[in-house]
Design a protein around this nucleic acid. Structure first.
Lengths: 186, 186
DNA sequence: GGTTTCAGTCAACGCCCGTACAATGAATCG
DNA sequence: CGATTCATTGTACGGGCGTTGACTGAAACC
């Protein structure tokens, strides 16, 4: 009765705790932004001591860095406009939190902007290359701006007209815009 | 030679100093957001003591409130799409700072969002009323999102493709989008 | 000219934050 | 089983913040 094996080995426990902290951090950064997020707060949400967060992640900066890491987004294939609409749908449905950590904290935390501007630039370049127009870069930038604006109003500012609308309706209304900007022929 | 009258009466001096503080606060809030803006920093930019800022504005919260006040925006008249493009142009050219204080701090400072959501709602209602479509509200919301997204990418995230583009090019490319969303006939 | 007002300064407070570090006790290992 | 690792805790410190209230000296007033 007492020789029960421990449910979790030490390594497992460690990984689980670290994951729990990371999840708490992601949620908090997304909701409060960088400045208002405190190590103690994250720790308490994760049910651990604040010192442990430091022990595992080294600093708040690094915790943020790890929280903001996005899975490499593979671009959908197909006509640019449709591909971009798919990309938008993904950000509207799949995992708003991931986007929010980045978006909100880029605004909150100036130092974080740098590395993300790089990622954004890469995205813009790939998109720009797929758009058949002389001002492809600007067009890609505008599409990116539209996507950012929609996510912003819907999830951060929570403006009612966007927050309550079904994703399908949003996509449908934006399709002509994306086609116009992506230079699709009608 | 010594009976020179004082250049500024006390009331003038007071108004000038207060205006200087307010200008410094606006600039700082726009650049750093609510949390990273400090009373001491604003005071030092304005060339006064931190205590004076408190004395005049009561609290950081109130200083922010006063900084974020926008002049009542009168809506341009004409066809909705053109009116909205004019509105966008205004935010691109006229005074980016005013928009930025609100936009950045709504994201940074949750408590501030409330009062601005009200203003945004009023704007959306007026816009929605001018759009001849069943889903006018959503369409207005999308247009607002686009405007926010453009300002966001151009002035806050400073993404190169938008930050460097002439306002005219942006307007030109967005015209079809606005027309499509505002339900204008071609 | 004496008194009052008031723009502006200064020093201090209490608080919360990120961070450092020693201590603990259970899992791991030889 | 004894030694060692290591996940986890508790405590403390140094700094920056918003805010306060006493103070100063020149303008305003009668």
């Amino acid at each position: 009765m007492s020789d029960e094996k421990p449910r979790r080995t030490r390594a497992e426990q460690r990984r689980e705790t670290e994951a729990r902290i990371l999840a708490a951090a992601r949620a908090t950064f997304a909701e409060l932004g960088y400045e208002r997020t405190t190590i103690r707060g994250v720790a308490s949400t994760a049910g651990v001591n604040a010192g442990l967060v430091m022990h595992y992640f080294g600093s708040k900066e690094e915790l943020f860095s790890r929280s903001a890491m996005l899975p490499e987004e593979e671009l959908p294939v197909g006509h640019p406009a449709e591909a971009l609409l798919t990309s938008l749908r993904r950000r509207l449905d799949d995992e708003p939190v991931a986007s929010l950590v980045v978006l909100r904290s880029m605004l909150t935390h100036a130092e974080a902007s740098g590395e993300f501007r790089v990622a954004a630039s890469a995205w813009l370049d790939r998109m720009g290359a797929a758009i058949p127009a002389a001002d492809a870069e600007l067009r890609a930038g505008l599409i990116s701006a539209i996507i950012n604006g929609v996510v912003l109003d819907r999830y951060l500012l929570k403006l009612s007209s966007l927050a309550d609308a079904p994703a399908d309706d949003i996509i449908a209304l934006l399709r002509p815009c994306f086609e116009s900007l992506a230079g699709e022929s009608p």
